[in-house]
Design a protein around this nucleic acid. Structure first.
Length: 320
DNA sequence: AAGACGGGGCA
DNA sequence: TGCCCAGTCTT
């Protein structure tokens, strides 16, 4: 596939004055060619996958690795093949089917998004990033990703993998830093292939290819530069592969003893049981270090979030 | 701009 | 143990 020159006039910014090292078109061609040869075969990338299938995959893949998503995605698509199917499903079943993907509020938001599609979009996944962005649980990344991967629209897709590849190949940094800056957004935009000649096909290929390169080769910990198609062009390599600065270190979330751990333990217990007395549920958590107050507070927060329900003394998944 | 929000696998 | 992963939402 032939990549064209970067977008000349798709914005008001004076792109023509910006010069990149390395030359973007060269990187486009190399990375897209690499993708065509080495990309993983994933069900949501198959041509027959519906926009809904793409949407479900994108929500599941927020902060969750592909290998853990695969089996859950297969089951979800079998049980709820259209937005209306998920919208009509009991919340308890959805949370059980979400299993241990983590951040279960994503499952709730996905159902809310499905309901919005039924209410406002004729039961279909909306086809533009602006419409997608208004759905619950759909942020800047997911809106662009679904518009691009399901509807072939040349949106600027930027995830953690893409930020890292950009930081290394074009900015010369080891890591992109914790926050997504306006400078990074502008760089990603300026690096997009032109859309005039091919209706955005190369732009979408570029998005998918850079993401895959970041996931498989240009990884955070130990990048495999030996097999990288643009190693000889990479600004970070050219600079001698400097180590990450203090600023670029990732924050690292604590886990042991946090409310997130306790909430997760409560959800795990609720998924495998019918309604249980509150005290029995909280006392049964295998978390010796969690105080009674913390357990109680976390259960209350889950109820507030709509992830658990209490009727009288008994607690269960919502609607169960 | 920073913090909350799950969970498992790998170095 | 610490770090990382196709982010979003709230303050």
């Amino acid at each position: 596939m032939k990549a064209a020159a970067p977008n000349p006039a798709s914005t008001t910014s004076a792109r023509a004055d910006i010069s990149f090292t390395p030359e973007p078109t060269l990187v486009h061609d190399r990375v897209i060619e690499w993708f065509e040869e080495h990309a993983r075969t994933l069900p949501w990338r198959e041509p027959d996958c519906t926009p809904w299938g793409v949407m479900v995959s994108e929500i599941m893949l927020q902060q969750t690795p592909v290998v853990r998503v695969l089996p859950r995605w297969q089951e979800w698509m079998r049980r709820w093949p259209r937005p209306a199917d998920l919208a009509a499903a009991p919340v308890a079943e959805i949370l059980r089917a979400w299993d241990r993907l983590g951040y279960p509020r994503r499952a709730l938001r996905l159902q809310a998004a499905a309901q919005a599609m039924v209410d406002d979009h004729g039961g279909e996944v909306p086809g533009t990033a602006d419409e997608l962005r208004r759905l619950p649980g759909v942020g800047e990344y997911t809106a662009a990703a679904v518009a691009c991967f399901a509807f072939n629209q040349p949106e600027v897709v930027v995830d953690t993998n893409i930020r890292r590849v950009h930081a290394r190949a074009f900015t010369g940094h080891a890591l992109p830093g914790k926050t997504y800056t306006s400078a990074q957004r502008r760089l990603a935009h300026d690096l997009m292939p032109a859309t005039a000649s091919d209706d955005g096909a190369t732009a979408c290929a570029w998005n998918a290819s850079v993401m895959e390169l970041g996931a498989l080769i240009c990884t955070a910990r130990a990048p495999q530069c030996e097999v990288c198609p643009v190693a000889d062009l990479c600004a970070w390599r050219t600079a001698g592969s400097p180590a990450p600065t203090e600023e670029q270190q990732t924050k690292g979330q604590a886990w042991a003893g946090t409310d997130r751990q306790v909430r997760g333990a409560i959800m795990a217990a609720l998924r495998t049981s019918a309604a249980v007395p509150r005290a029995e549920l909280l006392d049964g958590l295998a978390l010796p270090e969690a105080s009674a107050q913390q357990r109680s507070r976390c259960l209350d927060s889950l109820i507030t979030d709509g992830l658990a329900a209490q009727a009288g003394d008994r607690v269960s998944l919502p609607g169960a």
